[in-house]
Design a protein around this nucleic acid. Sequence first.
DNA 1: ATTGACGGTATTGTATGCGATAATTGAAGA
DNA 2: TCTTCAATTATCGCATACAATACCGTCAAT
Lengths: 256, 256
Amino acid sequence: MTWSEPRTAEPEKKRAKMSAKMTEPRQPGLRAQSVYKALRRAIIEQALKPGMKLPEDSIGEQLGVSRTLVREAFGRLAIEGLVELKPNRGASVAYPTLEEARDVFDVRRGLERMVAETLAGNLTAAQAAELEAHVRLEEKAHEQDGPESIRLSGEFHIKLAEMTGNALLLRYVQEASSRCSLILAIYGRPHSSECAVSEHRQLIDALRAGDAARAAHLMDHHLQAVVTRALLTPRGERDIREVLAPYALSEGLTPP
Amino acid sequence: MTWSEPRTAEPEKKRAKMSAKMTEPRQPGLRAQSVYKALRRAIIEQALKPGMKLPEDSIGEQLGVSRTLVREAFGRLAIEGLVELKPNRGASVAYPTLEEARDVFDVRRGLERMVAETLAGNLTAAQAAELEAHVRLEEKAHEQDGPESIRLSGEFHIKLAEMTGNALLLRYVQEASSRCSLILAIYGRPHSSECAVSEHRQLIDALRAGDAARAAHLMDHHLQAVVTRALLTPRGERDIREVLAPYALSEGLTPP
DNA sequence: ATTGACGGTATTGTATGCGATAATTGAAGA
DNA sequence: TCTTCAATTATCGCATACAATACCGTCAAT
């Protein structure tokens, strides 16, 4: 994101009573949305790391908006579990505990099972083709194993949710999905590519065949596999910091 | 709108610099929460009817807070699908279309199926007892068939979700549940008591027996039954207004 | 009579201000 | 040197200020 324009560079005293034509008439609500999306991406891509403090002032200044809009974005992100909001202590990037993490993954499995069941036997030819094209992209990306691979894996699941045509289900899947990203950023091993492409392929087959039970089962185990592959299991924590951090954070302590 | 008190009559210059002790130190964030809860209840209990306009000013004035907090509440409620927020046109109580309604019910069924599966065979004796006590309450209330009956039916499902110990699942179930209330307010027949107590009882039995499949199945059909009993099926709309209203509202038109 | 233009008012979107709370620093005492 | 506590500073919570729309009624023109 290019924040090249120095909107609030000057000592901000002269903005009242300015000549009427220098206000750019960006359409309303759009700036708020942008702040939200910027922060969301920054968190998911780990530019903002879990536990990191998020001062309203500096962020607003950086993004060229007032604290009001930043605050609004924090609200939404807090509901989605991406930031934590403590009274009088402001916002920080969420640092889910292992327990919360497990909750999220459990719910996600359930949600995506619904997706699979809904879609089984109801895919149009076009949709099936789109999914297969996507999987081929995943295969290509998987070879050079960049961060692209991870993004595509995630998008596959979002695409599936979209195809159900159920807006609420889509929203929940998206939410669970972002939270999973955050969780894997904390507890996951460095960069396992998370989703096995072959499992995606099998799933598509089951969906085309209209085998709801098999599709649901595949999805369930696929996501279960993601968890184990990415190491969510707490046996043998690798770093003492990681063991303590959640506790420290949840008590309002701030490790350096 | 009663403009009895001349709020902005005075040149509003003298409100700064008041004697230091007249600020009640209510703890921060609590007022925001209160506004949110107040509006939420008002909507669910249909004091605020679907489609009704929600001006920030008058609501804030009524609740004794500034537009800022009202706005914040609107944001949360909008995410939960209880209010609609249109740019530059403000907030109104949501008026879900039949399609959205179906989405919500579908997701709810899936979520509560998860609840049932999670709980099956995992109820403590205390929990089972609590549920049975609740059902007895429902039976009592069912006789005089007041609005109490509806509230208790809803609470049964919330209680179940709580017992899973999964905070996220609980939140989703609560959200779906409130949206269902709103939906039934629009499309439901006058006051069917929505949940059959006997079905609740059967469900508890299945949960105690640890029969996950049966519990899930019961839950699924129970909720399906709620839909049919409450008449969500669009055959034979009773009133032209009700047919048109969703379309009007969704286009931003405001029927009288 | 309907429609379209115009002007005033009501409401929204966003920024800013003010008091309050927590973080931090620094000084004094153990 | 290590604690304890007070003063300073950074931030937050909330209200308010102000500009930008949208709404509504009036009036003129077809």
